[in-house]
Simulated assay, not measured.
Amino acid sequence: MPTYPKIKPTYNLQFPIRVPDDVLVELGEFTGNFWSDSLAQEPFVIEAIRNYINPPPPPAQEPAATTEMGYQWKQVFLPEGTRLRASFGRAPYFATVVGAEIKYEGHTVSPSCFANLHGSGNRNAWKAIWLRLPGSNEWLLADVCRSARKAAIARLHEGGAQADSRPAEGERAPAPQQPSARHLPASQTWPRPAAGPSSAPATHDKGDLRKSGTGRSARRRKRRAAKQMPGNP
């Protein structure tokens, strides 16, 4: 079934609308036309009404430029724009990381100096300063940030050590080495196998062979044995 474009109906409505005197005067000053010149003021009034009904879209926000500037406080890095907060007598005071420095009322201060701007001067900055990083709405105690950073560094080192101990691709893991007897105490030395029937036969020197099967004495024993046999004289 064919569809047809919708045709907006045309109206020829004329109805006076009251405009306050001060608005008419301001509109005339803005457009440069006299306030009573309705024909000259009409296009401006129509444009204002249409812009009110269909406001133009807001301009696209450009992403915030990333920066590598900031203040390095021991293990914790404070990017530029980080807010610092401390308090004395329940009255808070603030500082901001600008560039690579911490600024308080235009003066460059260290974390310890900022934490002890008021009071006796012996407060621990890690436990007295709260931090709010750029893009975050939460305030975190500086000591909590330091603990989290230390834990992250420890995990990073553990992961690197495990990666170094793993064999490379295509290589076999080395077999565990057995301790040698000289590195073990006397009570833990490995037992030696006992000699049994499967052990190699003992060797004899030449002198033993001559005594058992060769020589003059052997021939005499053979003759005596032959005479003792029945049938020999």
Results as ranks from 00 to 15, higher is better:
31 T>R: 09
173 A>V: 01
36 S>F: 06
209 L>S: 13
11 Y>K: 10
156 L>H: 07
143 D>C: 07
98 V>N: 09
134 P>Q: 04
135 G>D: 09
137 N>V: 03
179 P>I: 01
219 R>A: 13
230 P>Q: 06
16 P>S: 11
70 G>T: 00
167 P>H: 04
62 E>A: 04
48 A>Q: 12
191 P>L: 12
3 T>H: 11
202 A>N: 06
82 T>C: 04
17 I>V: 15
62 E>S: 08
22 D>T: 09
83 R>N: 13
84 L>F: 03
177 Q>T: 05
128 A>I: 00
189 T>Y: 01
123 R>A: 13
183 H>K: 05
80 E>K: 00
20 P>E: 14
184 L>F: 02
178 Q>V: 02
196 G>C: 07
152 A>H: 05
100 A>V: 00
187 S>N: 12
16 P>Q: 13
169 E>R: 05
193 P>W: 02
87 S>T: 14
100 A>E: 07
147 S>W: 08
160 G>F: 02
59 P>W: 00
96 T>M: 14
21 D>Q: 13
33 N>Y: 14
87 S>W: 10
113 C>S: 09
130 W>R: 10
144 V>I: 10
200 A>S: 08
73 W>L: 08
192 R>K: 14
104 Y>M: 02
169 E>K: 07
129 I>N: 02
164 D>P: 13
87 S>I: 01
163 A>M: 11
162 Q>K: 15
123 R>I: 03
220 R>N: 08
29 E>I: 00
151 A>T: 11
10 T>R: 10
58 P>T: 03
89 G>Q: 14
115 A>E: 10
130 W>Q: 15
136 S>N: 14
210 R>Q: 13
69 M>H: 08
66 T>W: 00
159 G>N: 09
192 R>I: 07
22 D>V: 05
131 L>I: 15
141 L>S: 06
80 E>C: 00
197 P>L: 15
109 V>A: 01
101 E>W: 02
26 E>I: 02
128 A>G: 05
165 S>Y: 01
97 V>L: 11
117 L>I: 12
47 E>C: 01
104 Y>I: 03
163 A>Y: 11
12 N>A: 08
106 G>M: 06
216 R>E: 12
158 E>P: 08
15 F>Q: 08
146 R>L: 03
190 W>T: 15
208 D>L: 04
185 P>Q: 04
140 L>H: 10
22 D>R: 09
225 A>W: 10
195 A>Y: 04
171 E>K: 10
71 Y>S: 00
114 F>C: 06
160 G>T: 07
147 S>T: 05
134 P>I: 00
166 R>W: 06
97 V>A: 07
28 G>H: 11
